[in-house]
């Protein structure tokens, strides 16, 4: 058999797993709140409240974790979906998908820093 090279999957799989667990635990409720309840005025969604949350240290961490881990979970599965459809996936596509999630993470982090305290 060909020499067995150690895979780097553990890195991406850990992020995928963390995102999957987070989205399984609170994903549906988050979508209900931000996607349906807030826009339809069922819960208080004023700018002041949102800004206060984003300025708070705990709030920043929560927002960063949700955006980042959801992205890493999503892209990892999408990458595998492409493979499942029979399309050849190489390191380029892998880098593109995970790079996208990394960019999203960086953007979220930068925005949270710019919002200040």
């Amino acid at each position: 058999m060909a020499a067995l090279k150690r895979s780097n999957k553990p890195v991406f799989w850990s992020l995928f797993g963390a995102g999957g667990m987070l989205s399984a635990l609170i994903g549906p409720m988050l979508i209900l709140i931000t996607g349906i309840a807030m826009p339809l005025g069922m819960v208080n969604s004023g700018y002041e409240r949102a800004a206060a949350f984003a300025q708070n240290g705990f709030g920043k961490l929560a927002i960063l974790l949700v955006i980042s881990l959801f992205l890493f979970h999503g892209v990892h599965r999408m990458y595998h979906c492409v493979h499942d459809f029979g399309i050849h996936v190489g390191p380029g596509l892998k880098a593109a998908f995970h790079g996208f999630a990394a960019l999203g993470t960086l953007a979220a982090g930068w925005l949270l820093l710019s919002i200040g305290v």
């Binding site: 067995l4 090279k5 150690r6 895979s7 999957k9 799989w13 595998h80 499942d84």
Partner: peptide, 14 residues
């Protein structure tokens, strides 16, 4: 572990 850790080891499973 060499077999386990390879891309075609456990990491081939979805």
């Amino acid at each position: 572990m060499k077999v386990v850790n390879a891309e075609d080891g456990v990491w081939g499973c979805t």
